[in-house]
Every structure is written in structure tokens, then in C-alpha cells.
Design a binder for these strands. Structure first.
Lengths: 225, 225
DNA sequence: TAGATTGTTAATCGATTAACAATC
DNA sequence: TAGATTGTTAATCGATTAACAATC
């Protein structure tokens, strides 16, 4: 049933969920693809196609049931069977992620934190004790944990990744910024702020070319009143 | 000269830069498109096309000059003219980002932090004092700051965004998870962990279907020796 | 020169958008 | 019924990959 869904579509599903949650709070029972499209600045056909691929159907002349669609997408994305994850690297970013309440909502529970820094080991972060990294492989095996969130410095990212994959970790969410090479069947998903920042910088630069007047510092602007 | 470059290409440029930095440290003078492609698991034609669009040319039979290409990409992405940014919302994620050294390398300097929480105001984070949010608009104008990083709770994200855009902020890097609507010419770039997590979950689920034996808990596995 | 590698044009693939028939 | 909205097929668009000529 789950036809091959593209990454792009997959990324839009949580967006639909957010809008649907809002609509649900507003006590709206139905929503049209046009309304969803408007709120997310998408084409309405794209919305219908995305929802169709998840196997949900709307009602002609009425639209899509807000609550049913929300539940359906939750199920489709597998958010109800919570997956357990290790967080490796208890630095600032690691701590921020460990503390982030949104993960639970999206089916991910961080069950343990690891670090190599003696000062960090033993600390309690987000209610969990930071453990020494060398314990991670054995614990991954015994707890049957399959996901690791990697918030380690780029220099040691590949080494840590190898260690974890060896211990049966199958999905690495890589925040280190270091491109990793991983053997099948393990998968890596890279989260790279440098990528996004490049896009943002470039778009801003183009905007500055197109609207040059906007960028005259205030002090230099001539008062034309 | 800067032909319309796609978002996808733009996202790959910092990746090339990372590999090039490594090669530079390894004292490699030249690199072929095939080698870059191998390291990033891309098609080599794609690499050549990406580099061509930035206006850099290689040498047939030799490849691309590692250091020259690195400098060229830095220039193309505008990383040398540092842009100043405000960070709004000094929670965990905000603190982690304020502290993140990678931004400077990519041309972004956080010059001020803002929050509405009286407990946070006055604190020093990453060497900068947290200021009350109401001061942000006037400061944005007087310092001519054009970029804001939004790490506020989703409920207040739209209101804060409106406030900032009104004050002349032109680029919002939105970590709030709340989809924002912004008037031209301001731009928003959303950073959404829920999106990435959806993709990761789905890929993992598919992997589990394809390699079911991998997911038998250890205790249940039959010893076949 | 021969051969490796670039740069570029053409072919393919996939995702988005347009058009429209089906439905209630 | 008429009309609004879905679901789906066809057309378009853009990005990736393949093929190959140009270069040193």
C-alpha cells in the first residue's frame, strides 16, 4: 500500500499535521485542499496528491476530515510506535536536543546520553544521566536501540559512527556537520546548518540586488518629506 | 554572471567546501570531479555542473585546484562579508546556536540575543547579554541588522516575526516549527526537525521491512553455531 | 601523441502543475 | 439538479544522468 513516497512529499506531511492541529483546535471539522495549500503556500493539486499517496481520501464538496486526517498521518508516519534513540555528544547542541519536547510528539524518545568528557559524564541532562561513550555499544545491543543522534565534533564523527553501526545502530541522525560514509543496511540522515545558511545567504544577497534601496543605512537616507 | 542556481546545488556547495578543506589539510593540490563525487556519493557530472554554475573552471587531465576552488566557493557564497544577525529566544536551542562556532565560518555573526523572560534578560550567553525583546526593533534599525534567527516557542513566532519585519529585518531563519507568513521583500527559511525526523522514520521503517531479521531482539535469536 | 579529465549538449527521470472527469 | 471539491490523467518544468566532444 505505501507507494514509494518522495522525500519532498514526506517533508510536507508534518507541515500538514501542524496546520491540521491548529484547525482542530479551532474546532474545524473539515478542510479543503485549497485551504491547506493556502496556509502552506503550496499548490492545491500537490496537497491532494500528497494526501492521496498516504491513502487518505476526502469527500467531494466537503474536503478532508481534520481529525481523521491528523490521525491517519500520525499512523502513516509511524509516530505512534515510539522509537528509542541514543544521543551521542552532550555538548550544547546535544543538550538542546535532549531537552526538546517535540521529539516525543514525533515518535522519538531519547533513552540515554553519552559523552567522552569526564566532566560531562555523570551529569543529569533532561532527566537522564550522561554515560561514558564506551558503554554505548553494549547498551545499544541489550536495549535493542536502533537510532543514534550524533552531536559530536566533526573530527570524531566517523569513528563514533563506525562504533555505533558495529553495535547494530541502523539509523544515524548526523548533526556533526561531517559527511559520513556508512555501510548498508545502516542509513544516515545529515542535518547541516551550513547548507541552510548557504541558501539563506544566497537568497538574501539576491534580495539585496533586487531591492537596493532597502539596504541604505538609515543615517544616510535622505528625508524626502 | 551568477546564473540562477538551484536550491539543491546551493546546498551542495558547503559540502564541497568541507571535502576541499580536508583535501587542503592533506596537502592535495588538485582534485577531480570523480573524487569529489565519490566522497559525497554524488554523480561526477553533477559535481562538474555545480562547480561550473559558480563560474569556476578546472583543468582537463588535472582536475580542480583545491585551494583556489575553496576560495572561489567562499566568495561565491558570500562568506567573506560577514552578516550580522539577531537571535530571538534565548532558550536551550537559542543558547546552543548562539554558542555555535560554525556560523562565523559561514559568514554569520550573532550580535545580540533577545528574550521576554525576566530571568533570562541580563544573563550573559556566548559572551553577549540577553536583552528584552522590545528593544529589538529599535536596535535592528540603528545597527542596520537584516537577519534574525528565530528560536521562540511556536505560539509567539508569527507575532515576533511581524515585529521584526516591521523593523526592517529581511531574512528570518525560523527554528520555531511554526509555519510563518511574511510579506515581501522579507524571506523566511524554515528549519524543521519534524520534517527531517519524518524522513528518517520512514526510511528506517522501510529498512526494517527489507531486513526483518536485523530486528529480532538479541535474546530471541537462535544460536545457529 | 594518447589518454585522462573537463565542459556541455542531449536524454532521462521525477516532481510539480494544469486540466478535467468523477462524485456527492 | 447545479456546483463545489476531490481524484487522476496529461503536460510542464526542472534537476539529474548519460554521452561525447574539447582540451591539455
Amino acid at each position: 500500500m505505501p507507494t514509494n513516497i518522495s522525500g519532498a512529499s514526506l517533508r510536507r506531511l508534518p507541515q500538514y499535521m501542524k496546520v491540521l492541529s491548529q484547525l482542530s483546535e479551532e474546532m474545524k471539522a473539515y478542510v479543503t485542499s485549497a485551504e491547506l495549500a493556502r496556509r502552506l503556500q503550496l499548490d492545491e493539486t500537490l496537497v491532494r496528491k500528497d494526501l492521496a499517496i498516504t491513502g487518505f481520501t476526502g469527500k467531494p464538496r466537503v474536503g478532508f476530515s481534520v481529525n481523521n486526517l491528523l490521525l491517519h498521518l500520525e499512523g502513516f508516519l509511524g509516530l505512534r510506535n515510539t522509537k528509542e534513540a541514543f544521543l551521542i555528544g552532550a555538548g550544547r547542541l546535544g543538550q538542546a536536543l535532549a531537552d526538546y519536547p517535540g521529539f516525543e510528539k514525533y515518535g522519538l524518545r531519547i533513552v540515554a546520553l553519552f559523552d567522552t568528557d569526564q566532566l560531562k559524564i555523570g551529569q543529569i541532562i533532561a532527566g537522564k544521566e550522561v554515560m561514558p561513550l564506551w558503554k554505548a555499544p553494549a547498551l545499544a545491543r541489550s536495549l535493542n536501540v536502533r537510532i543514534a543522534i550524533l552531536t559530536v565534533p566533526p573530527q570524531c564523527a566517523q569513528a563514533v559512527a563506525d562504533l555505533l553501526v558495529e553495535a547494530g545502530i541502523l539509523a544515524l541522525w548526523n548533526f556533526s556537520g561531517q559527511p559520513l560514509t556508512i555501510a548498508e543496511p545502516a542509513i544516515v540522515q545529515a542535518e547541516d546548518l551550513a547548507e541552510s545558511l548557504s541558501v539563506l545567504s544566497h537568497r538574501l544577497a539576491r534580495q539585496m540586488e533586487q531591492h537596493p534601496t532597502l539596504f541604505v543605512p538609515n543615517e544616510l537616507q535622505i528625508d524626502v518629506r
